[in-house]
Design a protein around this nucleic acid. Structure first.
Lengths: 330, 330
DNA sequence: ACTACGATTTGAAACGTTTCAATCCTCTTC
DNA sequence: GAAGAGGATTGAAACGTTTCAAATCGTAGT
């Protein structure tokens, strides 16, 4: 049925070894022979079988990337950065979406392990890194994405989420707000708890400031909307005067509930800061302030570390920065 | 180095054939033996080598999906739908991003062909389907996504883009607008030219209405911004009073240029309709009207057709619908 | 006790590639 | 004209799995 290297060899009157050499080491083959083999390949419509190639090589040329949510523009930007860098190395990226779900995460890890991926990029869900540790020991380089690893262990590329949370809430306090709401969850996700930690520190520095946590079940627009309705329902005296959302999707949902659904004004009644600075933040119904992370660069760097992993694990940490917009104007 | 089926066989004192049967046809093996093999697998940390598996099987369990732009939420929604349906069939989706670039599209096709994917889902770039036709004849089912195929050829799942364009512009005309701008491009992309075609038909039905095309180099936010600046620069008398953007990312860019960058009001000075109805349209600085397409359902259906492709190619066409928002209020 | 039959298990072949030691040529060089 | 160098080519082994015909075992029926 399908054309194999053997058929090509026969058609070009050479051995299979030569055909393989034409494909992989053209310099070792006489130009005239290369020509002849290439034309046979063309004529027969031969297409390399990657499975056989990998089987022989012992390792594939793809790297697995497991993210928390593909629908979050932050992660697609990371993916894009990773793909670009991977392409430079002749590698391709397989994108898996764990949906912040432990079972799906495990399923993708199984899959990538069976595929003998060249390496693994992952935004791990919980604190249990045993599985990843096993993989790493088995010879598959692993890079933690958007999650700082303790030195000496995994390579990692992350943004200082505690600093980011601090930055966000400090900004709200600077604007004179004192009753801060933190919207985000589940707290089991490291990014969320770190951002909250930073927020608390900022609040601790200012006498009279307080923070209240509005936990959510996930980092999505609908969850944000639900939280917004809860805020909305409060009487003016017991209502926070500012919100820090753990990511921009939540912030979007909050805006929907506060402005479209309710009658609150942003920033007058409630200031808002988000996290990630996705493209859509600048064009939101009230363009909102956000903590920017260099998404594409994170992806790019992750692949970088992966390629060098052979030598030695390294931890890279980027600094987040505040982008001010209308949602926190005086 | 790595544990193979042979090692497991030795450890469990059975033949390799039996190990394979435990993995693939447990019912053919005596319960006690299954137990013994499973425990050996556990003990040795055996992981199936997918390359060898595929080599033997002749075909992989993954299906390739090539989209025009992963950063467009419409396509990630399609991907999500496809993944869900694929998971039900025990298949996994490999996501490729052509970036509306012929070279990258070809590269992904090469890759997927070498991987002997189970099937291919693609939003093809141009009109040249010869390559896909060859693939199909070679036994790899192909489903065209978001692009209608002529009956008898490929399976396809699409939305009637001409109808969508018609719907959008008809709505603008109903609102009393007469000078319509169409923002989109390149026109080589079928979706774009179809939507324009529908727009023209709507205009043709109303005496005194005119349409002007503002071509863009792509369907992205920055391209929309550029087009917006061009609109912005017009004097009031020669400026259109409504815009139909070929997709929502363009619409976002237009909003940025018109409102944030300029001094035009939406919808008073310029009404706006987008296409795709991505989640962010409802929360834009001016929530804008858009033509909704059932993205996740499209993905889901595409996999559905793929699985059935063996039997007979089918063409599915969904109807787009208008969602009205503030950008086209009276 | 003998046969037949079904349930288990076995072991070698096959999938299509790459690698590598061995072989074959063709020129140089002395 | 012989020896040697070195480029080009060959062909078999190996990668790890699944399949399938054949072998083995145990048991029920007569």
């Amino acid at each position: 049925m399908t054309v194999s290297v053997r058929d090509v060899a026969a058609a070009a009157s050479v051995s299979v070894g030569t055909v393989s050499n034409v494909l992989n080491h053209p310099d070792r083959v006489a130009p005239a022979t290369v020509e002849r083999v290439l034309s046979a390949i063309e004529r027969l419509g031969f297409v390399r079988n990657d499975a056989a190639r990998q089987l022989r090589a012992g390792r594939s040329r793809s790297i697995g990337l497991v993210v928390l949510d593909v629908r979050n523009p932050f992660f697609t930007d990371v993916a894009r950065g990773a793909e670009d860098r991977a392409a430079e190395e002749g590698l391709i990226v397989l994108l898996g979406d764990s949906g912040a779900n432990g079972t799906r995460e495990a399923a993708y890890l199984d899959l990538f392990e069976e595929q003998r991926v060249h390496g693994l990029l992952i935004t791990p869900l919980g604190e249990d890194l045993a599985r990843l540790e096993r993989l790493r020991r088995g010879g598959t380089p692993v890079v933690l994405v958007d999650r700082q690893a303790p030195p000496g262990g995994f390579s990692s590329v992350a943004v200082d989420d505690v600093a980011g949370g601090f930055l966000a809430v400090r900004h709200l306090l600077d604007r004179g707000r004192r009753r801060i709401a933190f919207v985000g969850g589940p707290l089991g996700i490291r990014q969320v708890s770190d951002r909250l930690e930073g927020a608390r520190r900022a609040v601790a520095e200012v006498p009279g400031a307080a923070i209240e946590v509005f936990p959510t079940g996930g980092l999505t627009v609908p969850e944000g909307r639900t939280a917004g309705e809860a805020l909305q329902a409060r009487t003016p005296v017991e209502r926070p005067d500012a919100v820090f959302a753990a990511n921009d999707l939540l912030a979007m949902g909050l805006l929907q509930a506060l402005i479209l659904g309710g009658e609150l004004r942003v920033p007058e009644d409630m200031a808002l800061v988000g996290y990630d600075d996705i493209d859509f933040a600048a064009t939101a119904i009230v363009p909102f302030s956000s903590i920017r992370q260099p998404a594409a660069l994170i992806g790019r760097t992750a692949v970088d570390l992966l390629v060098r992993e052979a030598s030695e694990p390294r931890q890279v940490v980027f600094r987040p920065e505040l982008v001010e917009r209308a949602s926190t104007q005086a």
